[in-house]
Write a protein that binds this DNA or RNA. Sequence first.
RNA 1: GGAUGAGUGGCCGAGCGGUUUAAGGCGCACGCCUGGAAAGCGUGUUGACAGCAAUGUCUCGCAGGUUCGAAUCCUGUCUCAUCCGCCA
Length: 426
Amino acid sequence: MLDIKWIRENTETVDKVMVMRGAAPISEKLVVMDEKRRDVMGKLQILQAKRNTLSKEIGQAKSTGVDAAPLFEQMKQVGPQVKDLEDQERNLQAELKLFVEALPNMLDAEVPLGKDEDENVEVRKWGTPREFNFEPQAHYDLGEKLGQLDFETAAKISGSRFSWSQGDLARLERSLAMFMLDTHTQENGFTEVNPPVLVTPASMYGTGQLPKFGDDAFYTNDERDLMLVPTAEVPLTNYMRDKTITEAELPLKFCAWTPCFRKEAGSAGRDTRGLIRVHQFNKVEMVQIVHPEKSDAALSFMLNCAEGILQKLEIPFRTVMLCSGDIGFCARKTFDIEVWLPAQDTYREISSCSNCGDFQARRMNAKFKDADGKNQFVHTLNGSGLAVGRTLVAVMENYQNEDGSITIPTVLQPYMGGKKVIEAVK
RNA sequence: GGAUGAGUGGCCGAGCGGUUUAAGGCGCACGCCUGGAAAGCGUGUUGACAGCAAUGUCUCGCAGGUUCGAAUCCUGUCUCAUCCGCCA
């Protein structure tokens, strides 16, 4: 959420970013609404002051035995007027809030102008795609032939866009998650968290999924309207909701391995086969809560943490900076990591690392007390480190052998009980 | 899921319609005092909004309502505690 005071003073910037993001300019409307609200507020405050004075005088009159009747008459005038203005102010405030909370975050100066994902800018490439002397198979074919991926069963149980893995492949996914968690906690300084994956609408609002993007979330019929998290960013970042911590406590660095649930509402017909786009997948998520001056560095750090996983797995990837038309609602700057998938002969997203600045912190009232004793909003960042299901896909496709077996990456072998190759079940 | 009770400032805790500008205490900060400290005394000590400022307004879990006036009365809601039930 943007600060209305800031909007008032930076209307050109607001409109410029709206256009860059492919939306219509809106600042003029906001400024008019805000002026009206402040005007009513001014009148209201004068009347409230009058009411306070009268109320005090009535109290004194009653205690000293003076006749309070004339004061009562005045109060009967002022009271309803105050109430009327309070109603007006409340309505104007609510109306303005609807608009302000629908505004996306401002963009970092480095974010390139662009319409969609085709205009994202590659910032680096790592590793060289392997030369195959046979036709590499897609992960779903490999998995089914190994007898360890079963989309038919998944569909019977839950419908389309769900997965069923078993045996060594199921263990490989767990190994990947453990490897990621161990790396982030032991080497990168993150604290492992095991958070709820059912959250309240207030939490979804805090991280920006609500109110605009509720269509992609799964709801429960629970009386509290609990929702399934689309990412662990939601519970991890909401740790800070309605909280003020000391500067010394910063930064907070959390990571969690959780299932994520998404309706994939807008992606009918895309990636219909396999594990790439499913309603439920596992992800290791990193979240950082940092001092405003440190958030740029924190984003680079987190991106390195995510890239480090693929480097250790020795799988090629490239990193892109999202352009203005592709960047998410809450983010001021985002890097995607795209992993090489030989069967698709292309790079596919496996991680997204964003600096949200104070945008989420404002929504969820997350602050710290600075050295001068002033409360300031924290900056929040989140990044996948990594999407575990998609990493499994990448391992399968990049490490496949001609006979359909899959070599286990060296760093994962300890997690697989020393096993080096996954082969078809007899 | 049922019953009962409770939510007040950094913390404890009083207040149950108008003298509340939220008593009192603790903690913390600054000052006086002191050779230095402790004690003592004094001052300050939630956050947000409007305003250039002086100031003003709001904030007693949250949201409504009653009233000329609400921390106080009413309704809803959330959280916590205790007991019962159910349960991996």
